[in-house]
Design a protein around this nucleic acid. Sequence first.
DNA 1: CCGATGTTCATGCGTTTGCATCTACCTCAA
DNA 2: TTGAGGTAGATGCAAACGCATGAACATCGG
Lengths: 162, 162
Amino acid sequence: MRGATMTRRGRGHLANDSWEALLTAHAVLMKRFAAAPIWDEVSMREYDVLYTLAKQDRPIRLGELNRNVLLSQPALSRLVERLADRGLVERAPDPADGRGVRLALTEAGREQQRRTGRRHAADVAREVGAALGDEEMRTLEALTRKLAGQDRPSGEAEEENR
Amino acid sequence: MRGATMTRRGRGHLANDSWEALLTAHAVLMKRFAAAPIWDEVSMREYDVLYTLAKQDRPIRLGELNRNVLLSQPALSRLVERLADRGLVERAPDPADGRGVRLALTEAGREQQRRTGRRHAADVAREVGAALGDEEMRTLEALTRKLAGQDRPSGEAEEENR
DNA sequence: CCGATGTTCATGCGTTTGCATCTACCTCAA
DNA sequence: TTGAGGTAGATGCAAACGCATGAACATCGG
């Protein structure tokens, strides 16, 4: 006899259903966050870059940044250029690699990130905190970390260490 | 024993950490999916619209669609217009509301969604399936569904204009 | 040392997006 | 019925994006 047809579906369906649920949660919450009146100085995408740079303890490369930001390389290059023009990001040539650029926040950029981040974090805490309990948040973090931290099953090689 | 202050601070961090982890997972997987050679006919954003329409059993409104798609209303309006020009989506005036439009897939649109969806679902199943076990996927789905919140929590610290 | 190949970021260009605004329609109170 | 106010979607326009490609540098085999 076949498996029960109640809620039993294949692994593929499980994977797709969970991914769809994640996408929905992402879209719904992003829309709520975008509606907050805190993006008058930096846009959400710009904040994404500022936040990623703020997490680093030393300058990072553009390509490195591009792994965390959902933008094409040219688009990110120009976004960084705009942030540099506004004095929020500093672009310096990489002494170890003449092709590369080393990106870091300026003091103004760090301050801007803190200011926007403080307000945005409150929204995140309110929305996520209202939906999930402590243990659920911990579980969600663990699962999404695991989801992101996978090696590619097929494709070209990627340097993990240095 | 009480720890109100610490609890609130801790919850805020929990919420922000889990949200950041979700964002990272979203960005990382989206980049992998985008790299797949299956978007030659419809882009990921177009597919998002086709998929959302495919899930509906009857025509939906643009604003309704816009709640699921992470685009501004004008951008979505024009995206739908392009899809309609390509014969994938049908736009009909809503008999119940002269302002609205009723959106539905054409037969070609449904077929296109199925074709792209089949290939994309394989990628999703491979990536997500490789990272999480069955029970983990079920848990992730449950948590992200809860996070998306069919109903907004009452007693919001926002504007109660309802 | 040299040329071939790969990598990193920037630039040209057509397309798409967001913001502000407009039009058309709905709702409701007077 | 009518007009004020609200809502749904479309449109003008500048900004931003993705794709293809270019320029500069790195790497490696011969």
